[in-house]
Write a protein that binds this DNA or RNA. Sequence first.
DNA 1: AACGCGGGGTC
DNA 2: GACCCAGCGTT
Length: 346
Amino acid sequence: MKNFSTRLLAWFDDHGRKDLPWQKDKSPYRVWVSEIMLQQTQVTTVIPYFERFMATFPRVDILAEATQDEVLHQWTGLGYYARARNLHATAKRIVNEYNGEFPHTPQELEALPGIGRSTAAAIIAICTGQRAAILDGNVKRVLARVFGVEGWPGQSATLKQLWDHAEALTPSDRVADYTQAIMDLGAVICVRSRPSCDRCPFQNDCHAFATQSIKEYPGKKPKKEKPVRSTTMLVIECDGNILLEQRKATGLWGGLWSFPESDEPETYLEAARLDHVQMEKLSAFRHTFTHFHLDIEAIHIKVKAASQTQASENLLWYDLEDPNNIGLTRPVTRILEALQSAPLLQ
DNA sequence: AACGCGGGGTC
DNA sequence: GACCCAGCGTT
């Protein structure tokens, strides 16, 4: 299609978003943090996290010097916690290897943890104005519909076609605006369900609109049955303090703090040299991940003096009145909320 | 090339 | 409940 970028930019000038928090001061640091937070996460969800993160870590060197617990604490609730670990690792590398300044080439950016092809391009385009093509969820949806690209974008053949379109369409002029514009079109007009085609600058050139097959694009991910796992979480309380265990550094909920899990509470307590005075089931619930369901049963256990329990690297007593700055899993925040709004056992 | 990785918004 | 979101790293 001719004039794609010109027409998109004309639309952007009238209708694009220009007041998002990360558009105020488009420094590489702020743009980078926003791009990482926005991976697989919606704008409205990100905004409060971004504001809080910037207030706590206003510069890359400050982020680099923070502890991982502090970074994960800021990330609690955002999900995909490897993003936070990679963000922290990259901050350290920016300080140590690049003297605190972000590199300006896609190759160097992509070599940093958590920055892939699209995120590198976004940083390049938005911060330097160098030509670089992005391909995020918005762009995939727009291009799949306009050009009738079939198949699920998770498949490499489909993904390649989308990248080819993205590269071909990205202009040399006004790349920063173009990058924002193509995302805005996807976020504001070409939304997933019930898109506003009558307000779209490409209505007359859109394959999906012309063939009345908008729902077919982009192709859907093949659905798979989610397996169900189950666990028992031990909410061990002593004097208003809750025992938490740090999860291993990688994998699911990596680096976050959660309740000890055991199907045999008595055995666990014995091993930890804890004497319980009361034990009561809390309500069971289901926590659903991308790829499986986790049925969680929580047991509230009150114990006598905790001094017996050795404090170790990956164990801490979490004071409900004076919480640590650490990353917590969703079930922990959920259960602690429930506990505090309806305190049991006095 | 396929899978692991969260939590929340939307319909 | 199904589906998906400003994707990337690992295998």
